[in-house]
């Protein structure tokens, strides 16, 4: 579905991504992990079509991303940004409905109410429906934005730190929803910080370090204590608990 080949990006003469090649297929959840400044958000921007790579190609459904027009692209991919800002005091329900904008004047428009209601139910924001967005807490804003992304109903979903500012329950809920999207045939890419969370929900983990992909594969393959320790420049323990992988930093006591 989405394929990147030899993608390099430089911002203000500073190399951010270097010859990155990877692909995302329908039905899989891909976690994008790596230390701060590794280029995760930049890579997601390239995937979203916000940022044109200085070298290399990005194709969506076989067509270069740069050749896609805004509207058809908006019907194929949705993006959850890292920051949730809104210029005016729209109500949460109105914000979720904004996700339906690409489907205006199409046959899918008839389903708007239903899709919006279901997106709000799945993100647990029904009680916030008539609150204005700027008055919501960080986590509530995040869930509202996620509901907007769900309402867009696209086969490619890009999530930049979807679990930031979320409590335990809602973290779980958002990622379970990402899994549900994948089992429905969508492709999901999520920038994540918690490696245990990535291990629990992702089919594949892509590890970025200094703008290059250093590992790309199933969690059990990628989450190697040595590899992760090297990438993060901090020793970690990878523990198996009840059949789940947990990555915890080794505590260094001075």
């Amino acid at each position: 579905m989405l394929s990147l080949s030899e993608v390099s990006v430089g911002l203000a003469g500073h190399p951010i991504l270097h010859r990155v090649s990877t692909s995302v297929s329908p039905g899989e959840v891909v976690a994008l992990v790596g230390p701060n400044g590794a280029g995760k958000t930049t890579l997601l921007s390239v995937m979203a079509g916000d940022l044109a790579p200085s070298a290399g190609t990005v194709t969506l459904d076989g067509t270069p991303l740069s050749a896609w027009k805004q509207l058809p692209l908006a019907r194929r991919r949705a993006v959850l940004p890292q920051e949730h800002r809104l210029a005016f005091g729209f109500r949460a329900a109105e914000v979720v409905r904004m996700g339906r904008a690409p489907w205006a004047r199409t046959a899918s428009e008839a389903a708007d109410d239903e899709v919006v209601a279901s997106a709000m139910a799945r993100t647990d924001i029904e009680p916030l429906a008539s609150r204005t967005f700027p008055t919501l807490s960080g986590g509530e804003k995040g869930r509202t934005s996620f509901a907007r992304v769900l309402a867009q109903t696209t086969p490619l979903v890009l999530l930049d730190e979807p679990t930031a500012a979320l409590d335990l329950r809602h973290q779980d809920q958002v990622l379970a929803e990402a899994r549900r999207l994948a089992s429905g045939g969508s492709a999901v890419v999520a920038v994540l910080h918690d490696l245990s969370v990535a291990a629990a929900y992702a089919d594949r983990i892509v590890v970025l370090a200094a703008g290059e992909i250093v590992a790309d594969g199933p969690p059990r393959e990628v989450l190697d204590a040595d590899l992760i320790g090297t990438v993060y420049e901090h020793p970690v323990d990878v523990i198996e608990h009840d059949g789940r992988l947990l990555v915890v930093p080794s505590r260094i006591h001075p």
Binding site: A74, R75, R77, A78, V79, R85, F90, V95, M98, A104
Partner: peptide, 20 residues
């Protein structure tokens, strides 16, 4: 008018929902 509503999301997010 309708596109202006979406612009409230910011330039990038407005592009993501199909606004030129």
């Amino acid at each position: 008018a309708r596109s202006l509503d979406l612009l409230a999301l910011g330039d990038r997010a407005a592009r993501h929902v199909g606004v030129n």
